[in-house]
Design a protein around this nucleic acid. Structure first.
Length: 653
RNA sequence: GGCUGUGUAGCUCAGCUGGUUAGAGCGAACGACUCAUAAUCGUUAGGUCGGCGGUUCAAGUCCGCCCACAGCCA
């Protein structure tokens, strides 16, 4: 029984530049692809871009380009170029505007039509151009569909519909009988919930005169295929084109974001069923990447990570490793540069890179740069090493990538400990210990060989560099289950670059006060957090590093807040604890103004609150923000209040 | 409003089908060592496992209610 693995990512909608979320998903899929290749699977990895639809036609028109030129530039110039630089090891990059794809979509449409599962019907309703679908009154907020810039328009259309509802009972039963089909389980529950009620039929076409940019319906030139029937079929059309449909399709794992769960978990299986095609094997759903403060990333919020920038700054291996190590599929994960820096420095530079460095130095110094002949293996390190793959493999298959990597890192740490305990530098002082010295160094090299292979799917370039620095070649996962494959007598290179240079400088981000920034680099010195930094709110002489931009300013959220209650801090005589009414909710804020105000005189006052300051505990009491105050010539602190009355919660800008 | 999930040491999180003194990494303190990228290794951190009640010989681990947060749906 040969092992086959087919992995896909969602195809990216080519209407704007790629962001970190796109990158995250490709890295997840890349990890799976690389792991399975290393583990002896006949592996095929597909990614690509989704290039049809009204939104693209509009974006192209706005850019003054033809749709074709527009998507060419984004698909090749932005998405594919970025993925190449990221080392995404795709085997095929499909574009839905390619002939091979269009041909296949038409074939399948015709087949389903002939089978009677597609019908023609008229429909009238509110249509959101931004979201490319009909919406209901209920979904509108202030007359606009959330996320759109324009209100929906009334449209009357005749479209083709796919009889999706017909397959609902079948799908529900299938999912109940196949708990592993959608992973992680939380997303499966959501789908089961959706299927408890009618899902309706799926609109699969648009009139061509309105949306010319799409694949024509084969039996009706007046219509083009609507997004999902077009896009989803890429997973199959790419295989059919290369002739490996039969061999690979039944082993397909689709990696997707939770935002497109329904199309993949509901539309797609029913489409496949109607088309008489077998189902894919597994749906791998991931959450979203959030900013470090736990909020959504967005250009307008100014907290988005630019993938190109972090790639250049930290390298692809660190980016891959960190995104795999510090996220979970089951939930949204906060991510940012401090995470990368801290993980890069501790795991990759200190634990792994430094271990390579120390063993290389000793080999060069004590053994003339030649890997010594080892004694037969019997130690703990060898036993642990050869059994490591057996522990990592299931973790990968269960999509617990963070655990899989941590497992290997633990082994790396045990190698460092082994070196410390064995003290090769002492053995080297006495010629009588030659043999023991050689055994120790060989053991570490073997351990590193094993670790490098098991980490290779996450740090593809550096794993090979590591082995090259030891004069070693490439191995598969199975080769880590045997001890002693590093050939004795191997000569290691005299020179090798530092594997993971450490980052000393942590970018100044000016994130909230004393926040959760993992004090990454520099560490030891004198970076004492300077505790009890009481924020006596005196106009905060913000590090005047030149003027700030309007965007910087926009990140601060000021609101009017009414003091509803106030008391002295139980453990600090300079602090007051204020309860504030901020319109729709209340806040507790600790402020260092006890010398200037009594609790009584503050109650009822309206103050200005910095509402999005990261919460902090001051002497054990939580402070959810900060109030504005100024200081007069005598050093007296005065709180800021609105000149005329403003309602609690009103935004100040 | 309905459903699902989350809430464990300062921070990020492990803890499968209930069972020895609740774990790891990071950060911090102290110590050891010098082959190494001021790296590594060891020790220490005394956390009501969100709250209340229940089942049980025994509960972060099961049940009920409540609180907070998130997601999905309406």
């Amino acid at each position: 029984m040969s092992k086959v693995f087919y992995v896909t990512t969602a195809i990216d909608y080519a209407n704007a530049a790629p962001h970190i979320g796109h990158v995250y998903e490709k890295i997840l899929a890349d990890f799976l692809a690389r792991w399975h290749r290393l583990d002896g699977y006949d592996t095929y990895f597909l990614t690509g871009t989704d290039e049809h639809g009204e939104k693209i036609a509009k974006a192209a028109a706005k850019a003054g380009k033809s749709p074709k030129d527009f998507v060419d530039e984004l698909s090749e110039g932005a998405f594919r170029a970025l993925y190449d630089r990221l080392g995404i090891s795709y085997d095929d990059f499909i574009r839905t505007t390619q002939e091979r794809h269009k041909r296949y979509v038409q074939q399948v449409l015709q087949r389903v039509y002939d089978a009677g599962d597609i019908y023609y019907a008229e429909y009238e309703g509110l249509y959101s151009v931004g979201s490319e679908r009909f919406v209901t009154e209920k979904e509108l907020v202030d007359g606009v569909f959330p996320g759109d810039s324009e209100p929906p328009v009334l449209r009357r259309e005749a479209n083709y519909f796919f009889r999706m509802e017909k397959y609902r009972p079948w799908l529900l039963e299938f999912l109940q009988n196949n708990p592993e089909f959608i992973q992680p389980a939380g997303y499966r529950n959501e789908v089961l919930e959706m299927l408890k009620e009618p899902i309706g039929d799926l609109s699969i076409s648009r009139p061509k005169d309105r949306v010319p940019w799409g694949i024509p319906i084969p039996w009706d030139e007046g219509h083009v295929t609507y997004v999902w029937f077009d896009a989803l079929l890429n997973y199959v059309s790419a295989l059919v084109d290369k002739g490996n449909f039969e061999s690979h399709w039944p082993h397909a794992w689709h990696v997707i974001g939770k935002d497109i769960l329904k199309p993949h978990a509901v539309f797609w299986p029913t489409m496949l069923k109607a088309a008489g095609l077998p189902l894919y094997e597994k749906l791998v759903v991931h959450g979203h990447i959030l900013a470090l403060d736990g909020r959504k990333m967005g250009k307008s919020l100014g907290n988005a990570i630019d993938p190109t920038e972090v790639l250049e700054k930290y390298g692809l291996d660190a980016l891959h490793y960190t995104l795999l190590r510090d996220t979970t599929l089951a939930a949204d994960s906060p991510f940012g540069e401090p995470v990368i820096v801290s993980r890069l420095n501790s795991d990759l530079a200190n634990d792994l890179g430094n271990l390579l460095s120390r063993v290389r130095t000793m080999l060069l110094k004590y053994c003339g740069g030649v890997l010594p002949e080892p004694s037969p293996a019997d130690g703990e390190i060898a036993r642990e090493g050869v059994s490591l793959a057996a522990r990592v493999r299931p973790l990968v298959r269960e999509l617990r990538f963070n655990h899989a990597l941590e497992e290997v890192l633990q082994y790396v740490r045990s190698l460092n400990k082994y070196v410390n305990d064995s003290k090769p530098w002492e053995l080297a002082r006495d010629e009588a210990n030659r043999k023991a010295l050689g055994d120790v160094l060989y053991t570490v090299v073997e351990g590193l060989r094993i670790a490098s292979v098991l980490l290779e799917a996450a740090i593809p370039n550096k794993a090979r560099e590591l082995r090259q620095a030891l004069g070693l070649g490439d191995y598969g996962v199975a080769d880590t289950e045997r001890w002693g494959l590093a050939p004795a007598g191997t000569r290691i290179p005299e020179e090798a670059p530092i594997l993971f240079p450490k980052l000393e400088a942590l970018e100044r981000e000016g994130k909230g006060q004393e926040g959760a920034k993992p004090e990454a680099a520099g560490g030891k010195r004198e970076a004492k957090p300077e505790k009890a930094k009481q924020p006596v709110p005196k106009a905060e002489p913000a590090p005047a590093n030149g003027p700030i931009t309007i965007d910087d300013f926009a990140r601060v959220e000021f609101r009017v807040a009414e003091v509803t209650a106030c008391e002295k801090h139980p453990q600090a005589d300079k602090l007051l604890v204020l309860q504030l009414n901020v319109g729709d909710h209340t806040r507790q804020v600790v402020s260092g103004i006890a010398q200037w105000y009594t609790p009584e005189e503050l109650v009822g006052k309206k103050l200005i609150l910095v509402a999005n300051l990261k919460p902090a505990k001051l002497r054990g009491v939580e402070s959810q923000g900060m109030i504005l105050a100024g200081e007069d010539a005598e050093g007296r602190v005065v709180v800021v209040t609105p000149e005329k009355d403003l309602p609690p919660g009103a935004r100040v800008r």
